[in-house]
Design a binder for these strands. Structure first.
Lengths: 348, 348
DNA sequence: GCCCGGATTTCCATCGTTATACAGCACGGC
DNA sequence: GCCGTGCTGTATAACGATGGAAATCCGGGC
């Protein structure tokens, strides 16, 4: 490990002068600067980030905790967050919770205390009481469909409106028996709550079938879950002429099952997904879907977090005694779009 | 920020005693331990990782730099690496290079110096000279198809053998005009080098068509690249009866184009991919593919890296003067399997 | 020749934690 | 009653970098 001291010794100056050179401090003689720079190059010195972080009291690292990277939606979102954060000079530490409550609790409790400046979490099974009992004081931003009463910024598209738009699209195509795929069973808090509500509101308003026989539950939100749920739904005799799926993965699984059963998409059953993952654009029948504005979500999430990290605009000296009441939590709703493709329209 | 000192003061002991309690040091009176623990709980103290890292001279963080998270192969691999590293008490800092040489160079040069203990990199465009000019001294493990002359551990399946297995599978099905999809054009070093060679060796050995008209180039390895390349190949009149694709994404793109052109998979054109990503199992025709043993790759990569991090087994005191020559770089070849599915066999 | 003021560089303390060395103390054997 | 002998707990010094005060240097004005 070559440190400031080594460079300083070699250049015949003090450690602080080397530090000044490294940080582009103005008042350094060109001659000194040159000598120091040469020593730096010769020794291959690189400032130790850990030490800097300790000194600075911050690390410039934010954590992003998502359920699964295997879900392309989250992988794509992660890329956006990483890219945007990098532009704001922050490094992202990516983690996954497997959608498990204990993992989620761990994160909000503050694993990595002192290592990360803040956390963006997309919870699945987290509960209100977990947030209330939170120990860590690092800023936290929540992402995704789940809604909480705790005072944290929350970024999510309007899931009810999106679900209604998807359902309406199917209704407008003349479908009357629209199934919902991806309710979670055995839970008091329903992760799919809002999308399910949107579906229910819209079919009810249209006077279409809204029976519970058209709601299929899943254990998770993977392709396999979608395939199984679709099979169960068909076996139950519910005979849907369309399915609105919790997400694209579930939809892709459902389409696979439909294909195996000899049912055509969209002629026999139209399918709508949610997330607009890349895969959906290359299915045999490209997938109609709700496209949340991922870039906006990433941007808003990072901005919201950073807003709570930065000292805030000009805290006047006297106000530092009586702490300014923090900004109230904000609920930000990035946009979304319905993207009609072959799974509802057929091939042009 | 509540630190050891605050806890110490509250418990009426020294900071070191608190540290001892936190770290489970044996010789602490139960009474003292209790008092300290209570102070910890009351203040909600969490040890500052940055300070620990500085003190320890290591962070327990390793970086994993992959081309794209949007490619499910890398997302799935990342999950494996993160999980396995976690089991070995290491945190993974995930990064992506977009397969760009400048990014890759940045990483091996040692961005994050001092913050990470080592790096696992899956390079795409990195060159030998970049590795030779490497500045950082943090251990580095290379992943993936590209081969280098630099002295670093390298983890990759036997790509030639895998490509031959895939091609042989197609030959055994009676296909004679097997195209290769995903050569990279305009590059001296061909990323797809080994897979292309495997294809060439196998078709030549079988006396099947091996002309350059059956080799389609791509700019990248995405679904879109695959779709475009397939279209070009068909337009060229090459009339393949099978395609072996650089990876599953390219294969999925190719299948989409085949579908649009009214060609059936596998009846008219059989398709084989590479990577065994989840998507392939849910295509209209499930995708035959080469499945690299991802878990083994992740395990070997992490193990190889950690082996160079840990002090090494019992460096005898006298040998510490004359530095032991480091272990020679190892080339590790995890296994792979050909997984035949509908894209070559048809639906059972 | 001496002093002044700004530019340049150095010294010291500090971020939060832990390793090392040592100081207090109770207990038992003589 | 004295002195080792184990335990406990404390004081101090790092880890590597940087902010701020203090010290030094330099040329110019008197």
């Amino acid at each position: 490990m070559v440190g400031l001291k080594d460079v300083a010794e070699r250049a015949g100056v003090s450690a602080k002068t080397v530090s000044n050179v490294v940080n582009g401090y103005r008042h350094v003689t060109p001659a000194t600067r040159r000598r120091v720079q040469q020593a730096i190059d010769e020794l291959g010195y690189r400032p130790n980030l850990t030490a800097r972080h300790l000194r600075a009291g911050r690390t410039g690292i934010i954590a992003l905790a998502l359920p699964e990277l295997g879900n392309p939606y989250f992988a794509e979102l992660a890329e956006e967050v990483i890219a945007y954060a990098a532009g704001r000079d922050y490094t992202v530490l990516l983690d996954h919770t497997h959608g498990r409550r204990d993992q989620e609790v761990l994160f909000i409790r503050g694993v990595r205390a002192g290592l990360i400046d803040g956390l963006i979490l997309s919870p699945i099974e987290l509960e209100n009481e977990d947030l209330a009992a939170r120990g860590s004081d690092a800023p936290l931003v929540l992402l995704g469909e789940r809604e909480y009463e705790a005072p944290y910024d929350h970024i999510a598209i309007d899931n009810v409106a999106a679900a209604r738009a998807a359902t309406r699209h199917l209704l407008e195509l003349g479908r009357r028996r629209i199934a919902f795929l991806g309710a979670r069973h055995g839970r008091t808090r329903q992760p799919a709550h809002l999308r399910l509500r949107g579906w229910r509101e819209e079919v009810s308003a249209a006077g279409a079938a809204a029976g519970e026989d058209l709601v299929a539950t899943t254990d998770g939100y993977t392709r396999a879950d979608g395939a199984r749920a679709m099979a169960r739904l068909l076996d139950s005799g519910a005979a849907p002429d369309a399915v609105f799926c919790y997400n694209d993965l579930v939809a892709i699984g459902a389409m696979r099952t439909l294909g195996e059963r000899g049912l055509r998409v969209p002629e026999d059953v139209a399918v709508v997904g949610f997330d607009d993952i890349e895969d959906g654009r290359y299915c045999a029948a490209t997938l109609t879907t709700i496209a949340p504005h991922k870039q906006a979500i990433a941007r808003e999430a990072v901005d919201a977090l950073l807003a709570r990290l930065r000292p805030g605009p000009a805290a006047t000296p006297e106000s530092s005694v009586s702490p300014v009441s923090p900004e109230p939590p904000r609920h930000i709703r990035p946009g979304f779009a319905l993207i009609p493709r072959e799974s509802t329209l057929g091939r042009p």
